[in-house]
């Protein structure tokens, strides 16, 4: 096993992300991924998952920007790093795959070239070497007739194929960390399972850490070692996957698990959380979940929930919970 003294693959400390200087879309994000670990970042749409993911490789589209805190990958600082240093880390130490795989491929560039691109950049491979290696990688990610497929274009691939190509491209120069932002959301259910299986296989073959960003709890228990739950731009709970799924401590995590289809598969009614996630433009005093919280105390105006943001509490089960009701 990995000793705790190892440099974490990803370390995020007190990260704030804002639109311009005014509107905060993510606040106080702390995240750590050890080597070989898979961490799932879970939350509803609009909770700030994708923005957080992009900030990790410093590719936030303006006017979004990191206003506080820091990100390091394999001990190398990302926040406020020089552009050249960032280019050497991206695609080399960290690969990324995205939600809409087909649109992530250049429509007028053969996929083999795109898969081999990181090798050309980071391993100084020649055009021919990169292409040969790309064909091998495509074969490895399960693309039939890889040498023919390497010469095809994005529009000739299905969504699942395109995601396999993206995975091959992201893993081409053997990164330590793979950021997978909703990698299966846009795919058919059967293809989803194949892609997740592929990620598992790759993870075992290499010493790969994965940050799996998803709203789909059903894939979390199968893939992740630890789960981090985000709500409205902040982390509300974090802990090992088994206890999070079995005994969630934060009311939001509980509600999220109750809503997931797995729990209602027995025939009960479909649950939902009343209300909607607040837009980042609305600032909520106190705990950001308190307006929707089923916890009785939170509804009271005079309670701490409505006045002050709860700090992280380490519970007996080993969870970090941001909730006034949490007991150590």
């Amino acid at each position: 096993m990995i000793s705790p003294g190892d440099t974490p693959c990803l370390k995020v400390e007190n990260l704030d992300i804002s639109i311009g200087d005014a509107v905060a879309v993510a606040r106080g994000i702390n995240l750590e991924i050890r080597r070989g670990e898979t961490v799932a970042l879970v939350g509803e749409s609009g909770s700030g998952k994708t923005v957080t993911a992009l900030s990790l490789i410093d590719l936030l589209p303006p006017p979004l920007k990191v206003t506080r805190g820091s990100v390091s990958i394999c001990g190398q600082k990302i926040t406020r790093a020089a552009p050249d240093a960032l280019n050497r880390i991206r695609g080399n130490r960290v690969g990324m795959i995205f939600q809409q795989p087909s649109s992530m491929l250049d429509p007028s560039c053969r996929v083999g070239r795109q898969v081999g691109e990181a090798l050309r950049l980071h391993r100084r491979a020649s055009r021919g070497e990169a292409f040969e290696r790309a064909v091998e990688l495509l074969r490895e990610v399960g693309i039939p007739e890889a040498d023919r497929r390497a010469r095809s274009f994005a529009h000739q691939l299905s969504g699942g194929m395109a995601q396999r190509v993206m995975i091959a491209a992201a893993l081409s120069s053997d990164p330590d960390l793979l950021i997978a932002d909703e990698p299966t959301t846009a795919l058919d259910v059967t293809v989803q399972a194949q892609i997740l299986g592929l990620l598992e296989k790759e993870k075992k073959q290499r010493t790969l850490s994965i940050l799996l960003i998803t709203h789909d709890l059903s894939i979390v228990s199968a893939m992740a070692d630890r789960v981090v739950v985000m709500y409205a731009g902040g982390i509300v709970e974090e802990g090992p996957v088994a206890t999070i799924m079995r005994a969630p401590q934060h009311p939001y995590t509980k509600a999220l698990i109750d809503c997931s289809l797995m729990r209602t598969a027995g025939g009960g009614d479909l649950e939902s959380i009343p209300g909607t996630i607040p837009p980042p433009t609305r600032s909520i005093p106190g705990c950001r979940f308190h307006p929707r919280c089923p916890h009785a105390l939170a509804r009271r105006q005079e309670s701490a929930c409505a006045r002050e943001e709860p700090a992280a509490t380490r519970t007996a089960a080993g969870h970090l919970v941001h909730c006034w009701a949490a007991e150590p």
Binding site: L59, R88, M96, F98, A118, A154
Partner: peptide, 27 residues
Amino acid sequence: LHANYILAARSRGLGLAGALVRHGLRN
């Protein structure tokens, strides 16, 4: 510039100029 494939190219380690030359101009 706003296309996803430029973002993906940059995530592979291409700078903005490199991504535009290799994947932007032709499109």
